[in-house]
Simulated scan of single mutants.
Amino acid sequence: MNILLWHVHGSWTTAFVQGPHTYTVPVLPERGPDGLGRAVTFDWPASVVERTPRELRSAEIDLVVLQRPHEAELVTRWLGRRPGRDLPAVYLEHNSPHGDVPDTRHPMADRDDLVIVHVTDFNRLFWDCGHTRCEVIEHGIVDPGHQYTGALARSAVVVNDPVRRGRTTGTDLLPLFARQGPLDVFGMRTAGLAAHLGLSEDRCRVADLPQARLHAELARRRLYLHPVRWTSLGLSLLEAMHLGLPVVALATTEVARAVPPGAGVVSTSTTELADAVRHYLTDAGAAEADGARARRAALGRYGLKRFLADWDRLIDEVAR
């Protein structure tokens, strides 16, 4: 089956394209947001092919996976087919709602010609999708292997754009955790974070690394810190669990279901979380043991085989 989707979320797409289909991604000369084409920093199989808008006009597409509201108009313009009416379609919702929560209306609400797929039960609960059919297909992760050493007594944080996103990503909480021990913040657009928070460079280091190097560096840190207040379930958290890191996380959105007891500490109390960071930094044995439990939990719930099987069941239903 030939599936059209945009390269929007590199980590999620990396898992999705491991399936048995052909995956067509639009490409534009400038490789902007609507035409990134194949990933550069992720390992994608040869079954992912690039097509220009002109090539898409004559391409055989069996299903489109929409991820942003304006993509429906792009499909109509580039393919000459309306998603949901002339072309089978699902709308993948990566994000928790913003705005008038919990009354936020989904852009695809009250439609009978497509299915909204949420990546967490939390997202399904909080989006108002009207009478549109909704399904939940939880994340799947390409297993990077148990790489944990915890050799560096530092906390690892993965977040993009932490200065701009501020309270959403818990950036304001980082000085509290930095007082328990040094932080290494990985992600895009992290430059200037330490100065913004008034922290020394040694207390808060930042780095933007490709995926393969990121996994190796995460595995050297003692614990994974997830201070995010409001977002969908971060794939970096699940990747850290796969690597074997224990988790210290705010008990918000889907985290409480993703991180079971014994795999780390999950709480809405910043005092409890600060104590947990300090505990793991000083007790390498406890960190290693809880990290091993985190890995087992992640493999059991967020394994690639289950993820692809769930998607194939829905694809067969919608496209055939």
Rank of each mutant, 00 (worst) to 15 (best):
V117E: 02
P33G: 07
R167D: 13
Q67L: 09
Y148A: 12
P246R: 10
Y148F: 13
V206T: 15
E317R: 14
D290I: 11
I315M: 09
P227M: 05
V17D: 04
L4C: 10
W127C: 01
G130K: 05
L214E: 03
A89T: 04
D112C: 00
M188A: 12
W12Y: 15
A195N: 09
H139L: 06
T104D: 06
L243Q: 02
P260G: 02
W44C: 06
H118N: 11
A309L: 10
T169I: 10
A15S: 12
G300Y: 06
P227Q: 07
L235G: 05
C204N: 08
D290M: 10
F126D: 00
L66H: 05
L5Q: 11
G19P: 07
L92E: 09
P260V: 07
T168Q: 15
P102V: 15
A219N: 08
P45C: 12
T132H: 09
P83Y: 10
E254L: 00
P107G: 06
H98L: 14
A263I: 06
R296E: 14
A319K: 05
E73P: 00
R57H: 10
A287H: 06
W44L: 13
A156F: 02
P227R: 06
T76K: 14
H139A: 07
R124C: 11
F42C: 04
E138A: 07
D283W: 05
R38H: 09
D316P: 01
T252F: 13
G140I: 01
A319I: 12
A319R: 13
A195L: 09
A207S: 12
G99D: 07
E71C: 13
G80H: 00
E30N: 13
P20H: 03
W230A: 14
T270C: 12
L223G: 07
V117G: 01
S236R: 00
G262L: 03
V27T: 15
S267V: 11
A39F: 11
E138F: 01
M188C: 00
L245M: 10
N123G: 14
T76I: 08
Y280R: 10
R205I: 00
R85Y: 08
W311M: 01
P29D: 10
P162G: 09
A39N: 12
F122A: 00
E317I: 09
V266T: 04
T41D: 15
H279N: 13
F126I: 08
H146A: 14
E71G: 09
H94E: 13
P260M: 04
L281C: 08
P33Q: 10
D202V: 07
R82I: 09
R68Y: 11
D143E: 06
W311Q: 05
H196E: 14
A240M: 02
R81M: 12
D43M: 04
P227T: 15
L218H: 06
A46C: 08
G10L: 11
L273V: 12
R189K: 13
V142K: 03
R164C: 02
S96I: 15
